[in-house]
Structures are given as structure tokens and as C-alpha cells.
Simulated scan of single mutants.
Amino acid sequence: MANGFGSDEPSTTTPAEALLMHRAAALDAAFGKADVPARVSGIVAEANGRVVFTTSFGLEDQVLTHFIATAKLPVTFATLDTGRLFPEVYALWQETEERYGILIRPYYPRHDTLELHVRQNGINGFYASRDARKSCCDIRKVEPLGRALAGADIWLTGLRADQSAARGGVKLAEADAARGLVKASPLIDWSRERALAFAQQNDVPVNPLHAQGFVSIGCQPCTRAIRPGESERAGRWWWEDDAAKECGLHVGQDGKLARAQAAPAEARA
């Protein structure tokens, strides 16, 4: 029996995964050409449970926060406090809550796991190897993200397709089978220039580090300002020679950036 991908091999897609893929494809078709307010409100309205928006207080996240908060949508705001963030991020966190009258729930690393990691690798051991860095990201970001998204039906993110070559294939809505939810990125087709112009026109609070060349901001030891001509994410884990650098939040079980898959024929029927 064909599996819907042009192959006679049996499909390994489970019914739950097929349903997620069908829902993601439907959202993409319904709101792919809509403006951002319609996208966000429409996606939230289609949720079968809790909607969570994870913010790291970057430019895109701040713009998306503005859309969600001003529309007073039933969305849970969450952030991952790794313990190694820039002071400017904490100041912006407070400013954002006060500006929009919202509560942004913090999620922290498990203290026992983090303590063991530091004992074994040193406080800055992530510079030593890619494996050590990925382990640090797993502890400080990936595991807390799992708790932030536990029980959620839809995950909203501030991803943009042009942030890096690796993110170019990301769609408005995708099935995240590993987490059992639909992941949506309402600003996926925006440029950085468009996001910046919107922030300036609407008095959206932004990190002052952006003006100093810190375009993509993560943990302080792992982020530098980019140089002229460099890509947006060149300042993240700059000591690693890899154009597809990711911390693990937006990658699949194979370690690659998760992309939407076509729904099997039985799910599209």
C-alpha cells in the first residue's frame, strides 16, 4: 500500500502524528497568506488546548508579544532562564511585563543536573567541545522547554525563515511529533528590517544590545556581536564551525532543524 509519499513502503507515521501533520497543513493553508494579527488570532482559535508562546526577548519575540498581548489572546507566555543571560535581558523582561500587563512564566534548569554538569565540565566547559556545549544547552534550555510545553496543544515561536539557511524550510505551522503539538511561527515570512520597523512604529520594547551588533541574543558567554557581512546567527556559538548551529530547541530527534512534512494521504482525506 502506498504511504502518500509516492512510495510502496509501509508508512511508519502513527495516527497521532498524522493528525498533527493534518492540523499543521490546515493552519498553513488557512493563514499562510493572512497578516500577522489574523494569523495569531486564527491559530489560537483553532487550538484544542493550551497555547504557549516561548520568548527569549529577541526582536521577533518582542513583536509577537505585542501582537498577542494587545489582542488579549489566551496565550501563556514562557521564557527559559538559563542563568547565563545578559543583564539587559532581565531588564527587558521586567519592562515587557510592565508595558503589556502580562506575566511571563520562568523555567529554570534542574539544579542537581546543572550542578553535576558544572562539576564535571567546569563553569565554562561548553567552549571545550561541541558535545559539551550541546550538553549545556540540553540542561539549560531543552529540558526546561519540555516542562514549559508540557500539556500544550500549540507552541508559538518567533522564528523567521531568513534568520539562517537552516531555517529557510520552516513553514508557518508544523507538526512537532516528539512533543505532541503543533508549532506555529506567525512571523515566518517577515524580514528583520520589517520587524524592526514595526517595533519602532509601535513603541515595542527591544533589547539595547541589538543596536550594538548583537542581532541574535542567547546566553552571554555564547553570544557576540556580528561583523559586517555576517549572517544573523553568526554571533551564536561563534567558535563552532557550523552554518546550521542550533541549541536544540527547534531541532528534531535527528538533531536537524525540524521541518514540516506532508501529511499522509489518509490524514489529508
Rank of each mutant, 00 (worst) to 15 (best):
N3P: 13
G6S: 11
A24H: 02
D28L: 01
A29Y: 07
F31I: 03
R39M: 13
V44G: 03
V52G: 12
T55M: 03
G58R: 05
L59A: 14
D61S: 13
L64I: 00
T65R: 00
F67N: 05
I68Y: 08
I68N: 01
A69G: 14
T70N: 08
K72I: 02
P74G: 12
E88V: 01
E88S: 12
R99M: 08
D112R: 06
G122R: 09
G122A: 02
G125L: 05
Y127W: 14
S129F: 06
R133Y: 12
P144S: 02
G151H: 05
A152L: 07
W155A: 05
W155D: 12
W155Q: 13
A161T: 06
A161H: 04
D162H: 08
S164K: 05
A165Q: 13
A173G: 07
E174W: 05
R179I: 09
P186T: 03
P186A: 04
I188E: 00
S191E: 07
A199P: 08
N202Q: 15
G218Y: 04
P221V: 00
C222N: 09
I226Y: 06
R227A: 14
G229W: 01
G235H: 12
W237K: 05
W239Q: 13
Q253R: 14
Q261K: 11
E266D: 14
E266S: 08
